[in-house]
Nucleic acid binder design. Structure first.
Lengths: 229, 229, 229, 229
DNA sequence: GATGAATGAGATTTCATTCAT
DNA sequence: TATGAATGAAATCTCATTCAT
């Protein structure tokens, strides 16, 4: 998406896109700079005309996308929606990112966010910004009484993000493309599971009858929303 | 140490332990075989006497620990405990693994389980065994009516394992040792959040009315609740 | 500037002057063509509009200056002065060259006259022209009986030029500018030492035997001595 | 000599000797590390087993020889000989160095002592140690009244060393081996020219006797003069 | 003239692995 | 078993030079 907004004749962009594909296919450590140049259809040296090192290419790819994500999280947070809806928006954004740019997401998840000795360490502050913003959403939900307080906001953020990343990791390992409905189902399950795990008990609503157990997963959310209103 | 059944003077074991420390400290790709030999205090070539390649060392470290974990999961599953207790045992096992061998766990999390193009791909089947066993626990809990069915067992397993791994990742990135109480708290929060997210609503028990906030989520939850109270 | 007959806005000249500074500062092998272009404030490719290669720039710088020096030596030689005065004029010219263009002289001494495998070899004939002309002065002084014949003219020229070049080398290695009086003193000492070394014994005094052929060549030496007295 | 004292099977030595030949033949900047390995008949990587870089090889070659020279200068200085004899010993040592290891001397003269931006700068202190020791000999000769004081000891050292280096440079540029008698003649001429240039006037006549404080230090000069007569 | 993007050969250096002892 | 010298195939990065505009 973001990456393909620019003209295809921009060589710098071509190199970045090629690097994304090559990193996704072979891994950062396993590929050579010449693989990137070949994939981009440019001369070897041009890669070094635009980037000072192989590392800088990955840094660029990561930062471009992560900044967009941080913005998406910010926007979700600033909205007037319920905590569950905010988290749903964030999960949706990440899942959509994978939907549209699975290779880029693979690179980020595989080469950056877990690379504790290399890129993950370099970008630690940026990465944690995301967790902290999510934790902020959780904290405010707790203050409002929508989320219970037994779980620390920090842990809530980790559980939420960790669940998403694990789902992404699963897709990444599967060689074939993920079906559309699986993408949507995943988003729903993430929100449904984690939010339910974080939310206070719904008001038992005496008349909520017996077997009506889980008619619609939205019940808790609605309850939460109504309470916070 | 804990991982090793053999004496500490066994050179093979010394090399494995040294490799664990070096991989944790510098990363698999960033370290040299000579770093391992130096750390172990043995000659360069001896590494190749015991292992056929640098890869094989990591394979060995991973498999040793992962097999122990698979066994722990099996045992938890075979027990007569409630689903929540089973998952609690598993989370506890992983957290304890980190407690006792943070370096080994760092290596596994950082170098193997996310390495989609290298070791993660090699050990995919082994890694998935764990998810599948956990999914089995979820599935049986659903069959028993303890867990609700809106969430697929596979996703339940991913959310559970993903949350744990994300907590581990946080610890891995933090340079200083994790406090004992934080380890315990994390385990509790994982189980409390994910299980609550997976469990059915408690029987609304009409009379359970108002303030009975976190009464029913069954025994483990009660423990957590009481602590937080 | 001094070296340039052309206007300072002449791009070709700007490139040459910039190259001189860059070669002096970083060394020929260590600098890049882009460094020269940057220093000159012109575009990269313009360097190749005026010069066919990086080598050609150094060739040009060297030849420009060396030809001026050869001319200066010629003029000194053609003059009616004494051998000592001729050598003094030459030493003075070289020292003045350093006085006015230390960077250019640094480049010539460091990058050309000793570069036995590269530029020194290329310009060997030109370089030797200087030695040969100086040797010619020495030979004629010997023929006139002013210089003694135990020293070959070729060696005399080498000793003379070598002493100067070594003084220049000293200045080149010193980071700070050379004081005016040091420049003059150096010239005097070079001439004083080498000429005295080359000259016949001063007439040991009238009664000092018969054949005291050549009385006057000692005059300058005596002057120097009396000055120090 | 020094370099070939070790067994020919010492690979480190073989690499150093090969490097010397290759640097002399092609120049430091123009040769590749693989040229050195090939010349030495060893594998590429072995060069890096023994030396951390191409630079370090040249550093080693230079320091080995320069330290021997510093020692030779020291010894000459400590001896009870006249200043002229001391300088003669030093000139003789350097000329002999060239006689036995012309390639090594070429490398030192061409690649190090003039390389103001690279190796010369690195080894500046070491290089100047030599000048300073020679200057010390000159200074003491002046204090004894053997050398005149119009010339600073520093300049005297530069003139002496510069003359030698220029002679070496001449030989270096000549492709064919230097004849034995030329080597000896050069040494004699260097000493004869520079020492005469530095020495006081010979005692002007027998009757000058009396106060002729320093009769004997002039002996060598007189000898030289008489020899030339 | 003037620009700077584009090219690609080649250099240094690294390091997993082998092997003689 | 144990050693570490020896091997050599890459990989990254540099930079002189070309060329389209």
């Amino acid at each position: 998406m973001a990456a393909s907004g620019t003209a295809a004749t921009d060589k710098r962009r071509m190199i970045l896109d090629a690097a994304m594909r090559v990193f996704a296919r072979q891994g950062f450590h396993t590929c050579r700079v010449s693989d990137i140049a070949d994939e981009a259809g440019v001369a070897y040296g041009l890669v070094y005309h635009y980037f000072s090192s192989k590392d800088e290419i990955l840094d660029t790819l990561f930062l471009e996308r992560w900044n967009v994500m941080l913005q998406a999280i910010s926007e979700a947070d600033r909205s007037q929606r319920s905590p569950r809806e905010k988290l749903s928006a964030i999960a949706g954004f990440i899942v959509d990112s994978y939907r549209h740019e699975p290779e880029l997401m693979k690179v980020i998840v595989v080469e950056v966010t877990r690379a504790a000795n290399t890129f993950g360490r370099t970008h630690l502050a940026k990465i944690r910004e995301a967790y902290e913003q999510i934790a902020g959403i959780v904290a405010r939900a707790q203050a409002e009484g929508v989320f219970r307080s037994e779980i620390t906001p920090e842990f809530g953020a980790l559980a939420f993000y960790g669940s998403i990343e694990q789902v992404l990791t699963r897709w990444i390992f599967d060689r074939d493309a993920v079906a559309e409905d699986e993408l949507d189902a995943a988003k729903t399950m993430i929100v449904e599971t984690i939010c339910r795990g974080l939310e206070r008990d719904a008001a038992p609503a005496p008349e909520a009858s017996a077997g009506a157990a889980l008619a619609e997963p939205s019940t808790p959310a609605r309850t939460a929303a109504s309470r916070s209103a």
